[in-house]
Design a protein around this nucleic acid. Structure first.
Length: 522
RNA sequence: GGGCGCGUAGCUCAAUUGGCAGAGCAAGUGACUCUUAAUCACUAGGUUGAAGGUUCGAUUCCUUCCGCGCUCACCA
């Protein structure tokens, strides 16, 4: 038998021993009027003398994290909701059976305590136990108590262990909650209605990406997990829900990276009777609110060693950005150069001369595609402070309204921070005739082998035929925003259960079976 | 998919140009009624990710495979 198996059996055996002391192995409940955090917060300001005088009685529960036994007494710390609280157990105060229980406890066990709050000699707020209750057993051992759980793979695969052992992980997800709440509150206050639209779609759209495919048996139809909720949300705007938003998952069947998880959370919101200029202003408000919510009111956060200030949102046109971040002073273009297709082709050649491997552009790529590629390569990684990039080439924006004065450009903006795209917005194309033509262009591209081109969605065009008010819409990537606002380098650090390769044999069922069959040592 | 790196006790980490595989924590036994990474004594714990190769001898060098991380390409 391996050491690991022996540890498992030893701990499993303790369940029987604890039952023999008269405790239930898996009791039903433990009523606790105070959390560990509440006790700390409420009594931290109170002096030891006052605590003695007040005889403050509390009931508290949590996971045993450290144990220090000293013969007929001892200290331990429990952890509840990320907060630790010290417990003092004395044999002469809890009684024989409870003290025997205390001696058998392992780090990781769940216990309940009733007792008086006091201060130790060193001043630490502590509960002096009068009653001790056993609530659940940790049969598997806790990670190393000092270093925590370092193994990245185990942290992601067994997030529950990560959350127990690494308290800063909990903080990230608390902040994530605050960020989402701040965004939700800000929109709700502005008259927005929160809705849910289909995750399973017969025609996927609203973005350019490869979908996950699935099948519904009763209807015998193929369905796609949505790549975006956009087209459904705009149907709702047609239906008179003038301000709608949805915070939910999107699914894209693409690679994994530090910034990509196949399922990720998007906030999308649509505002009727508005254009993208209105959303620029709103974006500034939303990002600041999210940053302040995550960071105790301070809009400046630290990400990868850089201070990023979400109190400001710089605005640059895409053309201006390319000029600003052009890598070579001698060949730097002026914005007007980017309106001339021949000049754009020259600039791509010049640009390729300054970098190791040329931009990957298909033969005969349009000027717009070239401009977008130049922007992404030259600018994206350099946009550290929150920056709003506006006015995009029409080619890769099949759902955006064109600029009134130039049909090659659309009213679209994206927001970048920390070198990552975190938001995408545009004045929504609401002319069904124009939308039909754009879809048909996308279908042509698809036939030429562009897997990510948009499909024709005739019901969506039908909806536009009933009239959609002028509308602007935006999507904000919640995971990436959370990365920025929590200083997390990887999207996996802000997603509780990121997608991983399947794990090998776990073997815990076999161990439990073996433990059950092994003879009782008592 | 390409490139680079890592894999040693349950956990966190050592191991000298290739020469007996170690420590702390966790675990077991004992002592201890104000400790806090409790302390002290003793005990147990390893197919060094897997398979092959070179060598008198491999955790160490080579090959292949598996897993993970970083990075580039694609994408948000």
């Amino acid at each position: 038998m391996s050491l690991e198996d022996r540890l498992f059996e030893q701990r499993y055996q303790k369940i029987r021993e604890i039952e023999a002391l008269g405790f239930s192995a898996y009791p039903r409940k433990f009523a606790y009027p105070h959390t560990a955090a509440e006790i700390s917060a409420k009594f931290e300001p109170v002096s030891g003398e006052d605590l003695e005088a007040q005889k403050v009685q509390v009931r508290v529960c949590g996971r045993l994290m450290t144990v220090r036994r000293q013969g007929k007494a001892g200290f331990c710390h429990i952890q509840q909701e990320g907060e630790r609280l010290q417990i003092y157990v004395r044999k002469d105060e809890v009684g024989e059976a409870a003290f025997e229980l205390y001696k058998k406890l392992d780090a990781g066990d769940i216990i309940g305590i009733e007792g008086l709050v006091f201060r130790t000699k060193t001043g630490e707020l502590t509960v002096r136990a009068e009653r001790l209750e056993f609530l659940a057993k940790a049969i598997l051992p806790m990670p190393e108590k000092w270093h925590g759980l370092q193994d990245i793979e185990i942290r992601y695969r067994q997030r529950y262990l990560d959350l127990i052992a690494n308290r800063q992980v909990r903080e990230v997800f608390v902040k994530r909650d605050r960020i989402i709440r701040a965004l939700r509150d800000a929109l709700t206050q502005r008259g927005y209605l929160e809705v849910e639209t289909p995750m399973m779609q017969q025609i996927y759209g609203g973005a350019l990406a490869r979908p996950f495919e699935t099948h519904h048996n009763a209807l015998d139809i193929d369905l796609y997990l949505r790549i975006a909720p956009e087209l459904y949300l705009k149907r709702l705007v047609v239906g008179g829900l003038d301000r709608v938003f949805e915070i939910n998952k999107n699914f894209r069947n693409e690679g994994l990276s530090m910034r990509h998880n196949p399922e990720f959370t998007m906030l999308e919101f649509y505002q009727a009777y508005s254009d993208y200029n209105d959303l620029m202003d709103l974006s500034e408000v939303l990002l600041r609110a999210a940053a302040e919510a995550a960071n105790d009111g301070n809009p400046e956060v630290e990400f990868k060693g850089q201070k990023i200030n979400f109190g400001k949102l710089r605005r640059l046109s895409m053309k201006e950005a390319i000029v600003e971040f052009w890598p070579n002073d001698e060949t730097r273009p002026v914005p007007a150069d980017l309106d001339d297709p021949k000049r754009v082709a020259e600039l791509v050649d010049i640009y390729n001369g300054t970098i190791d491997s040329p931009l990957s552009l298909p033969a005969g790529a349009s000027a717009g595609s070239c401009i977008q590629a130049l922007f992404e390569h030259a600018c994206e990684a350099n946009l550290i402070q929150p920056t709003l990039i506006y006015d995009y080439p029409v080619e890769a924006s099949p759902l955006s309204k064109k600029k009134p004065d130039d049909p090659n450009w659309v009213e679209r903006f994206e927001i970048y921070a920390g070198g990552m795209e975190i938001a995408n917005a545009y004045s929504e194309l609401n002319d069904p005739q124009e939308q039909r033509r754009r879809f048909e262009q996308q279908v042509d591209q698809r036939e030429q082998g562009e897997r990510e081109a948009h499909e024709m969605d005739e019901d969506y065009i039908r909806a536009l035929c009933y009239g959609m008010p002028p509308t602007a819409g935006e999507g904000i990537g919640i995971d990436r925003l959370t990365m920025l606002l929590t200083g997390s380098n990887s999207i996996r650090d802000v997603v509780l259960f990121p997608l991983l390769r399947p794990e090998g044999e776990i073997g815990v069922a076999e161990r439990l079976r073996a433990a059950e069959e092994s003879p009782d040592e008592h």
